[in-house]
Amino acid sequence: MKSNFTSRLAIFAASVGALLTVAAPGWADTTAESAQRAQKLAVEVCSSCHGPGGVSVSPTFPHLAAQNRDYLVAQLVAFREHTRGEQAAHDFMYGMARSLDDATIHALAEFFSAQKPAPARRGDASLIARGKAIFDKGDPDRNIVACSVCHGADAKGSAVFPRLASQHADYVQKQLTVIQNALRAVPAMHGIVQSLKSDEMSAVAAYVASLN
């Protein structure tokens, strides 16, 4: 059973990697002009919700600091193209992203990915331990793949796999629910979280929030 699961897991990771490589947005060099425009936007507009340098106060708004560049590009494009379907994306981000051109999106992603990450938040130790178990090992019997397969053992992700470390727990849990309801176009995640229960989401969210 375990070896079957390991094989499936390897195939899954390879498939997701290949899929996301194909789906990843093209990369344009950030010019001095777009970098300046992005910094002005980040300081004067984005900071009003996402905080200075992308470290937000309210868990309604995710930390952007140190988030992976390619992931940020993909999300801003998804907001602009309305392919992220959850209510919060509609309420807050469609409008913010509607006027962003590709160069500005790339420069914003550069800006936020280069910021110092938000500090870790330690919470309930037993909840964190439970979340770590799911994050590291998944649950083979329920076809729940370990989160670390894509997001990395340290939850820092890579490329289009988002950094989860030190993200607001409430935001992570909300996104897991959103993905479970297929409101975000991330088919790779839909199967994984399908049988994840609410308390398990809460545990995983608490764990990643506790990581630096």
Binding site: A42, S47, P52, G54
Partner: peptide, 11 residues
């Protein structure tokens, strides 16, 4: 108007 100190990441 908005003022940001040098190096500040928000107004």
């Amino acid at each position: 108007g908005r003022y940001s100190a040098p190096g500040s990441q928000e107004p």
